[in-house]
Simulated scan of single mutants.
Amino acid sequence: MKITIIAVGKLKEKYLRDGINEYTKRLSKFCNLEIIEVSDEQAPDNLSSLQEEQVKKREGERIIKRLKEGAALIVLDVCGKKLSSEELARKIDSFFISGKSNITFVIGGSLGLDKDLLNMADFRLSLSDMTFPHQLARLILLEQVYRSFKIINGEPYHK
């Protein structure tokens, strides 16, 4: 089983890198994990909607170049479906059961994801109704993927 996370932007904060390293180590028991960072576009606060779409388009093109054919594609999207940890575990397991041994999660930049990329997704996942910095979303996602594998394997994990 392979899990790939494609994320826009580089992690800058040490505490996030430390947390991601910890979950990367924990996940090595369950899957082959690859984290791919693609560069983000500069996006000043006063962008027009057209400029925002152009930024998302350029970031989306970088992401699409890194997608592997045949992998299930799950994108993080504020308008996506919210799942419990158990439901996410079932969703991940359902891809594996259906013969997809590779799952790619995509985390967009601060403006979100391009509509073409959203339309390519096998599933759109929302982490919460709350807003998180996209860099923190990477850590939250890794923790939930780890929790999912613990659930799938019937192993205890704190609730």
Score class of each variant (00 low, 15 high):
I5H: 14
I5C: 14
A7V: 10
Y15F: 15
D18H: 13
R26F: 04
K29Y: 03
C31Q: 05
C31W: 00
S39Y: 12
Q42A: 08
P44D: 14
N46D: 15
L50V: 10
E53I: 06
V55F: 08
K56T: 10
I63W: 04
I64P: 02
K65W: 07
K65F: 01
K65T: 07
E69N: 15
G70V: 04
A72F: 11
L73H: 04
I74K: 03
D77V: 14
G80K: 03
K81I: 10
S84C: 01
S85D: 14
E86C: 10
E87S: 13
R90W: 02
R90V: 05
K91S: 02
I92R: 01
D93W: 09
S94L: 09
S94D: 14
F95P: 13
I97F: 09
S98G: 02
S101C: 10
S101A: 12
N102W: 07
N102G: 00
T104S: 06
I107F: 11
S110A: 15
L111Y: 12
L113Q: 06
D114E: 15
K115P: 04
A121F: 02
D122C: 02
R124P: 01
D129S: 09
M130H: 04
M130P: 03
M130L: 15
A137I: 08
R138A: 02
R138F: 01
L139Y: 05
L142V: 00
E143L: 01
V145F: 02
Y146M: 00
Y146F: 11
R147T: 01
S148R: 10
I151N: 00
H158A: 09
